[in-house]
């Protein structure tokens, strides 16, 4: 599904990712943990193809094809979804309008006809119910004035509508209350399947109680310094990063 090979990337000329190797097979969920500033969000942006994040070495294969020459929208249409750590506000654009354009852009790419307004509304309402989101959010402008938790829930809502094959969740759990955390985790789990994978970036092992990962990675200083099973998260929660970073050095 996703193969990251010796990935080096710079932002504004500064090297942030310094040789990342990571392979996610179809159906797997991987967690990435690591100290602030270690490069987790940078990795997610590089995967999504953000301008200004320059790959200087290595390659990223998605479904066996290199992503490097592809625009962000092409990657998105191919099934890569990023739930943003800081979702962006778009004044005046109704959430429903925005999401329907997105859904139809992806459908078009897959050779499907546009989803008509009625079907869209029905599907959207069903997903919102699943996430216990008020339908009013369809008419509100994208993320405008949403609380931190509401923004995160809205990201997961978009994900459920777009049905990506690879979902990258960048600290989607931060800012969620305990009940919301469960609901959002259930939303993510609902999308799990043999053909779908996820890369879950988090600081808290708590999330991984609900979304149980197959593999846990520790990212520090732009490199993956340790990889293990779900118990690694427990270990980190108990001991912090210091020992692992010292071991790796």
């Amino acid at each position: 599904m996703l193969e990251i090979k010796n990935l080096h990337a710079t932002v504004d000329g500064k090297e942030i990712l310094r040789g990342i190797n990571l392979t996610i097979k179809a159906g797997e969920v991987h967690a990435v943990m690591g100290p602030n500033g270690s490069g987790k969000s940078t990795l997610s942006y590089v995967l999504a193809g953000r301008d200004g994040y320059e790959v200087t070495q290595g390659d990223i294969l998605f479904h066996g094809r290199s992503l490097l020459g592809l625009e962000p929208e092409e990657r998105a249409r191919d099934g890569l979804f990023l739930a943003f750590q800081y979702p962006v506000e778009i004044p005046g654009v109704a959430n429903a309008t925005f999401l329907r354009s997105a859904v139809n852009a992806v459908r078009k790419h897959r050779g499907l006809a546009d989803m008509d307004a009625m079907t869209f509304l029905k599907t959207a309402k069903a997903k919102m119910k699943q996430l216990q989101m008020d339908e009013k959010f369809l008419q509100r402008a994208v993320n405008m004035g949403f609380s931190g938790g509401e923004k995160k829930r809205n990201e997961v809502f978009q994900m459920l509508m777009l049905e990506p094959t690879l979902a990258i969740l960048d600290e989607t759990d931060s800012g969620l209350d305990i009940d919301a955390l469960k609901i959002v985790a259930e939303g993510v789990n609902a999308l799990r399947g043999p053909e779908r994978s996820a890369l879950v970036i988090t600081h808290y092992q708590r999330l991984l109680d609900y979304i149980v990962p197959d593999v846990v990675h520790v990212l520090a200083g732009g490199r993956i310094i340790k990889t293990g099973g779900k118990d690694l998260a427990l270990e980190l929660e108990a001991k912090g990063y210091a020992d692992i970073i010292a071991d790796a050095a």
Partner: peptide, 22 residues
């Protein structure tokens, strides 16, 4: 970037944002 990550082309992203503005 947010719009494009959701699958909108750059042109559609601009158009969406501008329509919101207006």
């Amino acid at each position: 970037f947010y719009c494009r990550q959701r699958g909108l082309s750059e042109e559609d992203a601009v158009s969406t944002i501008v329509n919101g503005f207006c």
